[in-house]
Amino acid sequence: MNVEPAISLIRVNKTFDNGTLALKDLNLNIYQSEFISLVGPSGCGKSSLLRIIAGLSSASSGKIQWSNNANQKEIAFVFQEAALMPWATVTDNIRLPLKLAGVPKKAADYSIKESLDLVGLSGFEQAYPRQLSGGMKMRVSIARALVTSPKILLMDEPFGALDDITRTKLNDELLALWSHKSWTVVFVTHNIYEAVYLSNRVIVMAARPGRVVADITIDEPLPRNEEFRDSQAYSAYCRKVASELSKAMN
């Protein structure tokens, strides 16, 4: 892991138009190839923080530094909902980022195929979103994020709306992808188990005002599997995150 952070947030503040203080003096270093989860109660500003990193929203004050190897152009964002265009096929949905960037069709077709294979959607190229289940839609959404070969993946509770079985499956698939692509992932969730299972680091946030209250390194080798889910270490980490979280909520 590099010593210099890929992204540094320095004393970031965010105040909404209605006067709510969403983030207060937030400092956070995100290192390259790190899988980092933000957990916290609703209203702790974890989604706001992600949107600020993505450039979808701006900080009221403070600074965001990007290292030389990382920049805002190489990010991809996965939303809580799949956010697919209902009028377009799976292929055309995944093609969108390339089309907007003006990538020639032939090169685009190649990337789309690769992306479809990665998330296991081959055979569904011509399907429309309404024909897919929630888990499949989220796969399309992830494929769309991957099609530009991003270095940084920002995910805003991407599996929040899915059932547990699908969520577990997609967690494993995401980890497998991450381990051979070595992206930097910032993952927002309110699910402690998911956060511990996936991450190198879990950042616990508290609300009113939104701030970081704990930074827990999950010192276990990656990728992980079912064995890890049954291990003592996993339960211990989950308990630790849970206790920090309950402290944060008081």
């Binding site: 979808l56 990010i75 964002f77 939303f79 809580q80 909902e81 956010a83 265009m85 907007l100």
Partner: peptide
Amino acid sequence: NLSDLFRLYKASRWQTMLYL
């Protein structure tokens, strides 16, 4: 979310009109 996505990928005004 779709409009955020278009902003994220720096879609031009015309692209947003045409594709979204």
